[in-house]
Write a protein that binds this DNA or RNA. Structure first.
Lengths: 336, 336
DNA sequence: CTGTTAGCGCTTTCAA
DNA sequence: TTGAAAGCGCTAACAG
């Protein structure tokens, strides 16, 4: 079976190509009987319009790009699901790009996206990015950009985030109230907005409760999984071992569990652990992990909704439009 | 900044559009100095060729579609990662479609894909699908299809799977050797190849070891998460409670944990649990979950590799080409 | 080695 | 209400 196009439909119906085109788009300038004839034949011949011809002509692809650092991660997976749901509703297609937490990969993806392949971009920044020109160029090319979670404050674009500062504060406060005296913080790339804010919440909570504050208790985990694991293990093996740990991302919390196991430390007796996480199994971990859970699915939906609003020119947003969806502290263990 | 096209480059350089086009594609028929001039200006003006014009002309989109039932699931997330990795290497773009385990959504996606939007499709079937005409039509339109994990045996297309039968057998055998007398099996839609095979492994292992075989020990979990949970809880609450459970998918294993917790049953003392799963946290669950782990990332890479091999017409595959990547039994608890 | 020309399939003026 | 024709940006015969 071969591809059928407008021309063939037109010839079959003794109509012009333009009439068929208009009929299929249900234009008011075409008579009802003609429309019916066209619809019928189109269905019979299983006509599928060539999207690329249409995109070329209209300068619109009905396609968006989602650029994320990682997908094997419940947070981003749920966000994709939210984005895809809204995109389907709106008749858009979703291209996915993984940057593997690598700034240079993010740059090459962004450069590629300048081609007009997509009408808009939803992006969560990779850790290593320092230079953001590639993102500004997207905007200059009139390709709307919406950030979510890992946003870039120096770029004017809508942002969908959680209340990272407050969550960091609440998390730390929770550990303090659970009796922790020395609370460590595990963080990822400091080039990231979320890292800054979560850490500020942490330090502010310590200050607020007159807890000792030491730089050595903040562990920057910016390396490979293996390197990070070693750093965490060293922290837990030191004679200055913390009795509480606040992990800024899921993976680091999981690493703490593994390190504790390796060192024979018991959670929460020896060390209490709390982390940002969307693990569906958090409540089943041994012992349960108390989490700060982000509304990932809703964040994805919101980001997509904002993008389409802009694409459909329905609303003008202020350039620094920011939506904050609160994360929830989910206490999982009575001893924590 | 506006979009720059070949025509503008050509005018600027006093060359014809076709010469510029060829130069950019590094054609051998263009002189080195001309190429250099073109490259330089293209870079200076940040020229990005319009992919849709090129697609329209060449009838190739350099885009593939990935159609999966769900993404918030480690298996599919890892598979996407594998696919995206290979696609990027080959200069392809990846469209993603989630069918939400819904056969009719899968059908509408497949119908849409007939438009020529993509050069090929990698698909894992949704649970409910009975009718597969929509997939055959893709093939008839010369859009290559590669299945992975949840394949469709009645369609001739390359398939990337794990050794589901053997894994089901080994899993059940493992429970038998751990001393289980009444082993239940939790399965999803029986319209799925994986379900059949895993279950056959289960029943064959029971027969092999002369264990009682009862239909009531096979629970079909084809409903919503809530409905499935209730079925599982009922199973565990019955006076015929199994002392071993083999879950065919991750989510069902997790449900067992929740049900056990609700009923005050202890794992593995009261019931031993083993499931197909790629949970990174399986070893940390309380208690650890013994799993059959599929090589998800590798399966994604393999599926993509096969697809591109076909797209680049490098090899002709037999129509029933099948790659089997073995799943691994990962024992996590000494009592199991 | 470079230019001319004819489309790819669709949308959209402009005319009838 | 319909048709003719131009053209989106790029590629590839075919000529020179």
């Amino acid at each position: 079976m071969n591809k059928v196009n407008l021309k063939q439909l037109a010839k079959e119906l003794n109509l012009s190509v333009s009439t068929v085109s208009r009929a299929l788009r249900d234009s008011w300038e075409i008579s009802t009987p003609t429309k019916q004839r066209v619809f019928d034949l189109a269905k019979k011949m299983n006509f599928q319009p060539n999207p690329y011809a249409s995109s070329l002509r209209k300068h619109r692809s009905r396609t968006i790009a989602v650029v994320i650092p990682e997908v094997a991660n419940n947070f981003f997976a749920l966000a994709i699901k939210g984005i895809e749901t809204i995109a389907r509703e709106k008749g858009y297609h979703v291209l996915i790009y993984l940057t593997n937490e690598d700034g240079s990969e993010e740059m090459s993806v962004a450069a590629n996206l300048q081609s007009g392949r997509v009408d808009g971009v939803i992006l969560s920044m990779s850790g290593e990015t320092g230079d953001v020109r590639h993102l500004m160029e997207l905007q200059q090319r009139n390709i709307p950009l919406v950030f979510f979670d890992r946003v870039c404050d120096s770029i004017e674009a809508p942002k969908v985030v959680t209340n990272d500062y407050e969550s960091g504060f609440v998390a730390t406060e929770h550990l303090i109230k659970a009796g922790c005296q020395r609370i460590a913080h595990l963080t990822i790339s400091m080039g990231l907005s979320i890292s800054h804010k979560r850490m500020k919440g942490y330090t502010d909570a310590l200050l607020r409760y007159d807890k000792p504050y030491e730089d050595t208790m903040i562990v920057h985990c910016e390396g490979s999984d293996e390197e990070n694991f070693l750093k965490i293990r060293d922290l837990l093996a030191s004679d200055q071992r913390p009795d509480g740990i606040f992990a800024s991302v899921e993976m680091l919390a999981v690493q703490v569990y593994h390190a504790c196991r390796e060192l024979g430390l018991e959670i929460p007796r020896d060390v209490k652990v709390l982390g940002f996480s969307n693990l569906v199994t958090a409540s089943l971990l041994s012992p349960a992990l108390t989490t700060i859970a982000q509304p990932a699915y809703e964040m994805g939906k919101e980001a997509a909704t904002i993008l389409f609003r802009r694409l459909e020119k329905k609303y003008i947003l202020t350039p620094d439009h920011r939506v904050i969806l609160p994360a929830r502290l989910e206490v999982r263990s009575s001893t924590l």
